[in-house]
Each structure stands twice: as structure tokens, then as C-alpha cells.
Simulated scan of single mutants.
Amino acid sequence: MNERIQAKGIFFDVDDTLYDHLTPFRQAVEVVANTTGSFPYEAAYHRLRYYSDKLSLSLGGAGAMEAGSATEQMRKQRFQLALAEFDMELSIEQAAQMQAAYIGCQYEITMFPGARELLEKLAMAGHTVGLITNGAGEHQMNKIRAMDLDRLIPPAYQFVSGNVGWDKPDIRIFNHVNERTGTTPANSVYIGDSWRNDVVGGLGAGWRVIWFNHRGVDPESEHKPHHIARHYEDLSRLLMD
């Protein structure tokens, strides 16, 4: 786990990899449900992501998620389903309020300590540095702009599933990235927090994968990421030392 990765293409997930995606979820739940610090926010957040992926696929994936009544219904339903597992029954009105609060603070983004610095160092070292993220195109691009990443990562290396047409873990999105950036699976590394989307997807495409397991969760299958990192100091040692 301590060997340096020699790579030319280094690509990052966005949500909960470059910044803490739990923060807007926690704020939304607190505002609407008046929860306290004892509520299991992290566990509930993981279930929200599970239902978000599941319901999104039923609607045709992120490419179909930009707008529309079905999308809005899905976004409210994911809150209802996730929080019901923690004995919190939300009315449709409460779910709508929670979704509005969630979206309202999703663009108030603070990157993880060391994230911006690592991106800068990798780019200066001559690597191809990019992003691969699931989500509706405009929604994800707003997050990227909120982090002011255009100055570090050329727009041509920013891949949003809603724009590309395939959602992780579909290996076609990784193949598409290789084709568009002139990289190959053998010299590409993917860093992400999601076991299903990032670890399974990246390995399936033949990439080297660093699982950014900063929440200390358990693996969900027998897949073996090449490395595991818990914070950006780990990532820096793997990629820069």
C-alpha cells in the first residue's frame, strides 16, 4: 500500500472525494427534522446515495436527470426511503423541504484539506489530471465551478456522466475518458469513495484504483482496489512521493 503509483492519467471522483458531501445532507436533515448530534447522519447519508443511484437508474441514468417532474419526485423519494430506515417518516412536503435545503447548500463547497494542493502538484508534475463524476450535467458542473477547478483541470478533462451518456460503474465511461484524453487503462488511475461506482467501475475498465475510504466503511464485494487511502496525505504519498 505504500508504493508510489507511476501514472500519466490521474482522474478523481467529485462528490465525497474532492469535498465532504455529507455536509449539505446533514444541514438539510437538521433544518427540516430538527435532529441532534446523536442522529446517525453518516449511515443515513450512505443510504441516501444508495437510493439515489437506484432510483436514478430506473429513470434512465444521470443523462435523464437534468430536470422534470419525474426527477423531482425521485429526489424527494430518496429522502423518504433513506430516512425511513432510521425511523423518520417524512411526508411528501417534508421531503420536498429537505431536498430544497439540500440543493440550497450543495454549492457552498469547501474542498478536503490538501485536495487542491494535490491537484496542483499533479498537474505541475506533467500528469493528465481530470474528473469523472456521476450526475446531471449542469448540476455537477455547478459544483466544479464552485470549487474553481477550471484553473486546475481543463474542461476537456472534466467528464460528467449526464453529459457523456454513461454512468459509473459502466466501463464505457472510463473507455470514453481514455479515448478523449489519449490515455490507456494501463497508465490510468482513478480515485473515488464509492465502492460500487468507483472501485468496481474502475477495476472493470482495467484501471488502477485508489479507494478513498475516508469514512472507514467495509468493502461491498470481493473486488480488490490497488490502494486504500483515508485522507489526502495518503493520496499525496501514493501519487507524489
Rank of each mutant, 00 (worst) to 15 (best):
N178D: 06
S236C: 10
A115F: 05
Q99P: 04
T17K: 07
D148W: 00
W211Q: 00
R237L: 13
A44N: 01
G104W: 14
Y50G: 07
T133F: 01
R75Q: 14
Q6C: 14
P169K: 06
S52I: 01
M124S: 12
G182R: 09
R230Y: 08
P225A: 10
V160I: 15
A186R: 12
A136S: 11
T133G: 02
L149Y: 02
E179I: 12
E85W: 03
G63Y: 00
R47I: 03
R180P: 01
H176M: 08
E220H: 04
Q97L: 15
Y190L: 11
A64S: 15
F12W: 04
L90V: 12
Q99I: 02
N134Y: 09
A186M: 10
H139Y: 15
I173K: 01
H139L: 15
T17I: 01
I109Q: 00
R26F: 06
A44G: 14
F39W: 10
H127Y: 07
L59C: 07
K143S: 10
H231W: 08
G192Y: 06
H231Q: 06
A67S: 14
Q106W: 07
D198R: 01
F79W: 11
T184K: 08
Y102F: 15
M240T: 10
Y157K: 08
P24Y: 02
V14D: 06
T184V: 06
V31Y: 09
T23N: 06
T181P: 07
R215N: 06
T71C: 11
R180S: 13
D150N: 08
